[in-house]
Simulated scan of single mutants.
Amino acid sequence: MGSINPSVLHWGTTIGTLFMALMVILIRVKASERPVTVRKILIPPMGMATGFFMFVVPQVRFPLWWALAAFAAGWLIFAYPLIATTKFHRRDGEIFATRSKSFAFILLGLLLIRTLLHEFIDLYVSVPQSGGLFFILAFGMILHWRWFMWRRYKAILAEPGAPEPA
């Protein structure tokens, strides 16, 4: 079986990531029209966790401390723009996410940072390894953001006059 040129693979993943970012923006816009539930908060990181199966493939593996550093960067740095722009409000007895005008710019900015970091990291690790590292970074970011959302949602439910959980 032939091998794939790394630059083609890199551009393919960048275009794929851009497409996924645009899909996330569209999904978030539509999601703000529907009430938030615990299920809607928790399912994305649970679904994303299935991506850890990529580490079954030996070419994707790297030292544990790299994984911890990537997760910490996602949790401690990259989650904060999403946390800062995530707000909830009550309407008709239900809880909704408030649309943020800056969400799309933040997501595209994170994509730009990822692409720039990718160029640097590719000098030191293989394409499959960098994919694994960025997956762990993204997982740390999403997990922290969704954990914040869950805590905030629970706090709003605890307020007087809040709806019962769905």
Rank of each mutant, 00 (worst) to 15 (best):
residue 113 I to Q: 04
residue 113 I to W: 03
residue 113 I to F: 08
residue 113 I to P: 01
residue 113 I to R: 04
residue 114 R to N: 11
residue 114 R to Y: 07
residue 114 R to P: 00
residue 114 R to D: 03
residue 114 R to T: 09
residue 115 T to W: 13
residue 115 T to L: 12
residue 115 T to N: 13
residue 116 L to N: 11
residue 116 L to A: 14
residue 117 L to G: 15
residue 117 L to Y: 04
residue 117 L to F: 12
residue 117 L to E: 09
residue 117 L to Q: 08
residue 118 H to T: 15
residue 118 H to I: 06
residue 118 H to S: 15
residue 119 E to N: 11
residue 119 E to V: 12
residue 120 F to C: 11
residue 120 F to R: 15
residue 120 F to T: 15
residue 120 F to A: 15
residue 121 I to R: 08
residue 121 I to N: 07
residue 121 I to H: 05
residue 121 I to Y: 08
residue 122 D to T: 12
residue 124 Y to Q: 13
residue 124 Y to C: 05
residue 124 Y to I: 07
residue 124 Y to F: 14
residue 125 V to N: 02
residue 125 V to M: 10
residue 125 V to L: 12
residue 125 V to A: 10
residue 126 S to H: 07
residue 126 S to K: 09
residue 127 V to K: 11
residue 127 V to E: 11
residue 127 V to D: 08
residue 127 V to P: 02
residue 127 V to I: 10
residue 127 V to L: 13
residue 128 P to K: 08
residue 128 P to N: 05
residue 129 Q to K: 10
residue 130 S to Y: 03
residue 130 S to M: 14
residue 130 S to F: 04
residue 131 G to K: 06
residue 131 G to Y: 03
residue 131 G to M: 12
residue 131 G to N: 14
residue 131 G to C: 05
residue 132 G to Y: 03
residue 132 G to S: 06
residue 132 G to W: 04
residue 132 G to E: 03
residue 133 L to I: 13
residue 133 L to D: 01
residue 133 L to H: 01
residue 133 L to N: 02
residue 133 L to Q: 03
residue 134 F to W: 09
residue 134 F to Y: 11
residue 134 F to G: 06
residue 134 F to M: 10
residue 134 F to S: 08
residue 135 F to K: 06
residue 135 F to V: 05
residue 136 I to W: 04
residue 136 I to C: 04
residue 136 I to R: 08
residue 136 I to K: 08
residue 136 I to H: 07
residue 137 L to P: 01
residue 137 L to K: 02
residue 137 L to E: 10
residue 138 A to I: 07
residue 139 F to Y: 14
residue 139 F to N: 05
residue 140 G to L: 01
residue 140 G to M: 02
residue 140 G to A: 05
residue 140 G to N: 04
residue 141 M to C: 12
residue 142 I to K: 07
residue 142 I to F: 10
residue 143 L to R: 00
residue 143 L to Y: 03
residue 144 H to S: 11
residue 144 H to A: 12
residue 144 H to I: 00
residue 145 W to R: 05
residue 145 W to K: 06
residue 145 W to E: 03
residue 146 R to M: 07
residue 146 R to Q: 13
residue 146 R to K: 13
residue 146 R to G: 03
residue 146 R to D: 05
residue 147 W to E: 02
residue 148 F to Q: 09
residue 148 F to L: 02
residue 148 F to Y: 14
residue 148 F to W: 08
residue 150 W to A: 13
residue 150 W to H: 14
residue 150 W to K: 11
residue 150 W to P: 00
residue 150 W to T: 04
residue 151 R to E: 07
residue 151 R to D: 08
residue 151 R to M: 10
residue 151 R to W: 01
residue 152 R to G: 01
residue 152 R to S: 14
residue 152 R to D: 15
residue 152 R to M: 12
residue 152 R to H: 14
residue 152 R to C: 05
residue 153 Y to W: 14
residue 153 Y to D: 07
residue 153 Y to G: 09
residue 153 Y to Q: 09
residue 154 K to T: 12
residue 154 K to A: 13
residue 154 K to W: 01
residue 154 K to H: 11
residue 154 K to C: 10
residue 155 A to I: 02
residue 155 A to W: 00
residue 156 I to Y: 02
residue 156 I to N: 00
residue 156 I to S: 00
residue 156 I to A: 04
residue 156 I to L: 14
residue 156 I to V: 15
residue 157 L to P: 02
residue 157 L to R: 06
residue 157 L to S: 04
residue 157 L to D: 01
residue 157 L to E: 10
